[in-house]
Design a protein around this nucleic acid. Structure first.
Lengths: 279, 279
DNA sequence: GAATTAATAGAATAAACGTTCTAAATATTT
DNA sequence: AAATATTTAGAACGTTTATTCTATTAATTC
């Protein structure tokens, strides 16, 4: 390879193109290169190679493979990129809005940017509004539960599937009450007092979820609720109630905050379980 | 000076303030420092000192004067700053985690806060890294699709359910290939060339999703892919490929960015459909 | 203007650097 | 299954690195 790429985007393209033909270690470097360009810009051969899990000389070989005299020469591209490209966040938004206009699209700022900023705000609000004590109580319940049932439909179903995934991932018995085959009642009927129910319910508070919750209350199954208002019909029944304000962009409600909370609960639980194991 | 500034702006302020009191060579360095921060970030002592017209050791003395153990420590601030604008979100998370530790927040910082900050950073990264053109192309495909199929399992299933919900919400035919009853093949078999497939696949790239995609490619169904690396096995097959870097807290990967992207695509689609209706 | 202090440049040093070369290991071909 | 080619890790290399220490120079004080 006599003509090495002169810019980082070019290099990235060539690496991606050739990726399939690279040997084991070289493709490992390629992977790291594409995923962590910033690390390459500042790191030393020793540090980067360790981080990427390869021998230092492999980095040099990699650079040679793509036509550079050595690693340092290739590294220059990464530094160059970082230098020329330092537009501020706002400037980027301005640029993309401009792109849009040129592309003949409405002058709307990049939708993605609207979302990012809306979600960011919602997340920060979440961190401030959720009491640590509630988190702990919820985790207490989940730790003691023999099995965890999860209920939530439509928009809330997304959060339910995350709980289901996360809990199973840490070896907890998790049952998603998804009503497959219209069997809400049957799925909920196996709940017992030593279990726990996580219910997620947003306006207009679907009947399906309300029924499942009613059944749980009947059997004295502790309820952890994630909802959008303290006045939600289920709120009074809950052992712990998390009120989450989701971001809204053009009437579309987000789910970032609910999912962020779901993640935090899951990991909090994972922590506690590990701690218990050690004792 | 026992407490050296911890950020570049702070350092700049201190240097400016003390500038008048500095000796001849040190003020020469100060001048250079204020004028060429980028050079400092990447340069070596030898190069910088030559460029600034001072002796190498003068740079070390300068750093010492402002409380740093050596030039290298001070140089770190300049590198940090450069990364802030194009944040490798990983780097940022690493830094903020480090800050937290140094701040002596001994007893586990509130998990929720860790999540919020990790997710926030990931979201910002998303806004910067996703090209507007890709969004538009993806929306084009979705607008023209007679029906939209959605494939994704395990962690990616969460995103799938969101797409399914959102698309149905705007009256699009959306079919979630969820393999209920082990019927991946059957569910995928009805795809046609005038439809579209949204596939979400993260490492380790489940076979189920790969098979669905293969079947789609066979039938020339356009593919929109959301994945975690440009080197994902499905990337080359995709009409549009979104590479999303998710936040990671204690080995748990988030989904905020993927969902944010999913939302943006959904609403972008809703917009376009409304606009078409009016014409 | 001599004495004292501060600032500087230069030489010295040890550690870290990127790179090269070679032997071992792995994969491929025969 | 043997032979060959490719890929790899390891050791050694000479440089370059940032830094420290010490004369030397410049500035300040008396």
């Amino acid at each position: 390879m006599p003509n090495p790429p002169k810019t980082l985007p070019e290099l990235m393209a060539v690496v991606t193109e050739q990726y399939a033909t690279l040997s084991k270690r070289l493709s490992q470097v390629a992977q790291y290169l594409l995923d962590n360009p910033d690390e390459i810009a500042f790191g030393t051969v020793a540090v980067i190679s360790k981080d990427a899990g390869v021998h230092p000389s492999t980095l040099v070989r990699f650079a040679n493979t793509f036509g550079y005299s050595g690693f340092s020469e290739m590294q220059g591209l990464f530094q160059q990129e970082l230098l020329q490209d330092t537009p501020s966040y706002q400037e980027r938004i301005r640029l993309s809005a401009q792109e849009m206009q040129e592309a003949g699209v409405a002058s709307e700022p990049h939708l993605l940017n609207q979302f990012v900023s809306a979600n960011t705000q919602a997340l920060e609000h979440l961190a401030q509004s959720v009491p640590l004590a509630d988190m702990e109580r919820a985790i207490d319940i989940l730790v003691n539960a023999k099995a965890t049932y999860i209920a939530g439909v439509r928009r809330a179903y997304v959060v339910s599937t995350y709980f289901s995934y996360a809990l199973q991932h840490i070896d907890r018995r998790a049952y998603l009450i998804d009503g497959v085959g219209g069997m809400y009642k049957e799925q909920a009927s196996t709940m017992m007092a030593e279990d726990a129910l996580i219910a997620i319910s947003f306006y207009p508070y679907a009947d399906e979820t309300q029924n499942v919750v009613a059944s749980a209350i009947d059997k004295k199954v502790p309820l952890i609720l994630i909802t959008d208002s303290a006045l939600s019909p289920l709120a009074s029944s809950a052992e712990v109630c998390f009120v989450v304000k989701e971001a809204e962009v053009h009437t579309f409600r987000s789910l970032s905050s609910s999912l962020c909370l779901a993640q935090s609960l899951s990991i909090g639980l994972a922590y506690r379980l590990e701690k218990q194991k050690k004792n």
